[in-house]
Design a protein around this nucleic acid. Structure first.
Length: 204
DNA sequence: ATCAAGATTACCT
DNA sequence: GGTAATCTTGATA
């Protein structure tokens, strides 16, 4: 892996490219949240793409609403939504203004700030090694570990609070592709991408 | 005003 | 493998 100290923050141009390209390129990149006291970092290992034009599973499919407004901005913002009355999930807005495209971050491999993540997730110390894997191996888990809720929706990813660092480019042969998980519409689209054999992938 | 569904997870048998 | 938890959003009236 590329040295983290020399890693540069991804700029708006990275996000403003085509949806599926960004979804694949985000694999291996370092998701970061800071608030002065804590530094939380993790490698993105699983993503899913959502497209407002013809993808019925996308929140943006039915057009702009108060909730999904941010999805229609140009790439480079965070879109956070609340679901099942329980969990938050975070997405990276991509493409050009008006497209309604975003990438769901589904799984992360913790790199830094694990102690804080454990506290956020469980409110106690780890019981066993297995729980390490359980820290960030799913979209709801990531938001809990990173303490990301709705107020973070709309965060500018080129700012200082939440951003993504450039890092290794995952080789094509190491990227897995499948249908998306947990949806009931447009299920046939092969828009889930993941780093093959990574232990932090979401299950099912 | 009311209502059904939901880009999930944890815990049970 | 099954399902409860829990509440916001968007649709319909």
């Amino acid at each position: 892996m590329k040295d983290l100290k020399s890693a540069k923050k991804l700029e708006a141009d990275f996000y403003r490219r085509e949806l599926l390209t960004v979804a694949k390129d985000l694999l291996g990149k370092i998701f970061v949240k800071t608030d002065g006291r804590n530094l939380l970092m993790g490698k993105i290992v699983e993503t899913e793409a959502y497209h407002g034009d013809f993808d019925e599973a996308a929140h943006s499919f039915k057009g702009k609403t108060k909730r999904t407004e941010i999805m229609f901005e140009a790439g480079g913002y965070l879109y956070v939504y609340f679901t099942y009355g329980v969990h938050y999930c975070c997405n990276v807005v991509t493409g050009k203004k008006g497209q309604g495209t975003a990438v769901l971050i589904r799984a992360i491999e913790p790199i830094s700030g694990q102690d804080k993540m454990i506290k956020n997730r469980f409110g106690r110390k780890l019981k066993n090694e297995k729980e390490t894997i359980n820290l960030t191996s799913g979209p709801g888990k990531i938001c809990q570990a990173f303490a990301i809720e709705k107020t973070y929706s709309g965060t500018d990813l080129t700012g200082e609070n939440i951003y993504i660092l450039n890092s290794e480019k995952i080789r094509k042969q190491d990227i897995g592709v499948s249908r998306r998980i947990g949806i009931t519409k447009s299920v046939e689209l092969p828009w889930r991408f993941f780093i093959k054999n990574n232990p932090y992938l979401s299950r099912r």
